[in-house]
Design a protein around this nucleic acid. Structure first.
Lengths: 195, 195
DNA sequence: GTCTATAGCTTGATAGAC
DNA sequence: GTCTATCAAGCTATAGAC
């Protein structure tokens, strides 16, 4: 049993980097090998199920980071708007201020049904977390839910526009508007912030 | 010279359908052949440059549909909010009410620099059209521009959330909010519509 | 303008030595 | 746990007949 060349953490990070940039089909073993420094057979040793298993492991690991760190403030105590601000900050870190794409976007093109289901579960928890902020702010459940979905839309869309235009500002604005977007009562919400 | 099996229009529509669903790398000749009913050599006859030329032609054709039909109301006369409503309607048709993904999203993963540039030009014209509505509604230029970018973000994000959740409503809400989003003066905008 | 046929390369995947 | 070596299948691309 030879020594591991890299920890699971490192492997995960480098693999997800490729899948994030290239998508499922675009991520070839040639690139996965170059990114990890492992040859194909070694990757198959760690992930006998091939790319599908890799993606599954990556999504699980990202789920953990997302729920344990990024979305954590949603499930803690404190003023809803302040917690939303905290999440916006962490989302900015997570997406490299708009320079790293979202796996829920890039992996849901021509992927297996299994991966698709996993992605759906992940996004639903994301929405549920946002929804929690709205409820804590006193919004009716259906309203909080809708706000949550629209906030996730704004972030995902901001990432795409930022990617295509090569300009981080659309993504950054999506984050800046998050606290108000999740908590403001109907009829009092003002977006975008005063010009 | 044998008879053409299909018009360019039909070919374009079927090819773009594949690229839309699968992305650039995911769109293999096997699928492109199945979708068009043409064998590989015939596709190379029409597009000597291969997939890259196909994508370029598709983007050009979509640009035309977008500027001549979908975004046309932006450059006509009339009440800005009414024109925005008209565009929202056509965007709904164009994206199959949220069931067809956007080429600007799916083609900008691991595509060539040429394709990337083309996509950027397309999105910029889209934004410029939205911006025009805001200006006509009396918004300051920088404000109108920002609204336009955020509106495109909302639509792109709505498509992603709708795709992952398999629920068209997030996309449909992005369209429903378009008129107000593009035209409402700062401090008076109220989104989402009253609960 | 479409077809059949073929070429060469890259892909995903496995076997077996150390 | 990593490696070399190998495989069949799929891929992009081209030549040439009709």
């Amino acid at each position: 049993m030879r020594p591991a060349k890299a920890t699971d953490q490192q492997i995960f990070a480098r693999l997800s980097d490729v899948f994030r940039r290239k998508g499922y089909e675009g991520a070839s073993y040639a690139e996965l090998m170059a990114a990890t420094g492992l040859v194909k057979a070694s990757l198959y040793h760690r992930f006998p199920g091939g790319k599908e298993e890799m993606v599954d492991a990556i999504l699980s690991q990202v789920d953990r980071t997302f729920s344990d760190y990024v979305l954590r403030p949603a499930w803690e105590e404190g003023p809803p708007r302040e917690r939303a601000r905290q999440m916006a900050l962490r989302l900015g870190e997570f997406y490299g201020s708009g320079t790293r794409w979202c796996l829920l976007d890039t992996l849901t093109l021509s992927s297996t049904p299994r991966t698709m289901k996993h992605a759906r579960r992940s996004m639903m928890f994301w929405i549920k977390s946002f929804e929690r902020i709205g409820r804590d702010a006193g919004l009716p459940p259906t309203s909080a839910r809708r706000r949550a979905e629209d906030a996730v839309s704004a972030i995902e869309g901001g990432l795409i526009v930022s990617r295509v235009l090569k300009d981080r500002r659309p993504f950054k604005r999506a984050l800046a508007s998050l606290p108000i977007r999740l908590t403001a009562a109907a009829g009092t919400q003002r977006t975008p912030p005063p010009d």
